[in-house]
Amino acid sequence: MSAIKLAIVGVGKIVHDQHLPAIAANADFELVASASRHHTVAGLPGYTSIEAMLGAVPEIDAVSLCMPPQYRYQAAQVALAAGKHVFLEKPPGATLSEVADLEALAAARGVTLFTSWHSRYAPAVQPAKAYLAAHAPTAMQVSWKEDVRQWHPNQEWIWQAGGLGVFDPGINALSIVTEILQSRIFLTRATLEFPENRDAPIAAELHFQDAAGMPVHAQFDWRQTGPQSWDIVVQTADGELKLSNGGARLWVHGVEQPLEKEAEYPSLYRRFAELVRAGRAEVDVAPLRHVADAFMLGRRKVVDAFHD
């Protein structure tokens, strides 16, 4: 079976850190080109727009779109209209309506659209999901706190409207929560903290519940210094379950569990290849819907200005 000829659009830090190694290790893909306004991938032809790239390299089968979410819809529309399979970095778009339109276009063109949620492939996630399927949760606490200066230095787009602010990492937590819970949750109240000089929040406190009233409390903060925390603690009638390090570690009843080695992005590309080979799409917007609800329902609180 021939390799899927893949192109990267939007060459930034996440591409070099995660996408390129995962693609290089996957025999299902052959990386053939890139498109980015300012950067290229060494050894590959590079173009400044997706239109120029697709015109020059028509044999491309699929594209991975890794630019900021505010600019992803137009590139995805161009790729899908050209009959290319599309991998969407998280979050899949700036709005729910954009993603719905792309889903319809992909179906009409008969190509794959994949909304990737890398944190769902963290090694603790599926064991936690299996445990909670057998032991109903009674409460959940989410703490996703990190230093934005460490993880997003000088990334102005993330502070702009549509850049999501602290929800850029927080949506990873929501992707895990929506994967491991058997019941759907909905937002009941929220507070979003906006620096006085920014259009996106630096912190958020969210309260959810499911139809039976099971509470989920989430705290996201970009002002954390020292140790970073990406933890989900779930109470059940049989004891406590804890995911830590963004889903890389798992404790059940206080005992750490053995897990597979972390392989989030390799797993994403294996899944993308499966979908392309099968002629299927996989579009899940549940984490993005919760973020949209937070902006709709959340109380706005203005806090001190933020400067990199």
Score class of each variant (00 low, 15 high):
Gly10His: 11
Val11Gln: 13
Ile14Val: 14
Asp17Met: 07
Pro21Glu: 10
Ile23Thr: 09
Glu30Gln: 15
Leu31Phe: 13
Ser34Val: 12
Ser36Asn: 14
Gly43Val: 13
Leu44Asn: 03
Pro45Ser: 12
Pro45Arg: 12
Ala52Phe: 07
Ala56Met: 15
Met67Glu: 15
Pro68Asp: 13
Gln70Leu: 02
Gln70Phe: 06
Arg72Thr: 02
Ala79Thr: 08
Ala81Asp: 06
Thr95Lys: 06
Leu96Ala: 12
Val99Glu: 04
Leu105Asp: 05
Arg109Met: 15
Ser119Pro: 05
Ala122Ser: 13
Pro123Ile: 11
Val125Tyr: 10
Tyr131Ala: 01
Ala133Asn: 11
Trp144Glu: 02
Phe167Thr: 06
Pro169Trp: 02
Leu174Arg: 09
Thr178Trp: 00
Ser183Lys: 10
Leu187Ile: 11
Glu193Arg: 05
Pro195Val: 05
Glu196His: 04
Phe208Arg: 04
Gln209Val: 04
Ala212Gly: 11
Gly213Trp: 01
Phe220Leu: 15
Arg223Glu: 08
Arg223Ile: 06
Pro227Asp: 15
Pro227Asn: 12
Asp231Pro: 06
Ile232Asn: 00
Asp238Thr: 15
Gly239Met: 00
Gly247Glu: 02
Pro258Met: 13
Lys261Asp: 15
Glu274Tyr: 10
Pro287Cys: 04
Ala294Met: 10
Gly298Asn: 09
Arg300Ile: 07
Lys301Val: 04
Asp308Leu: 08
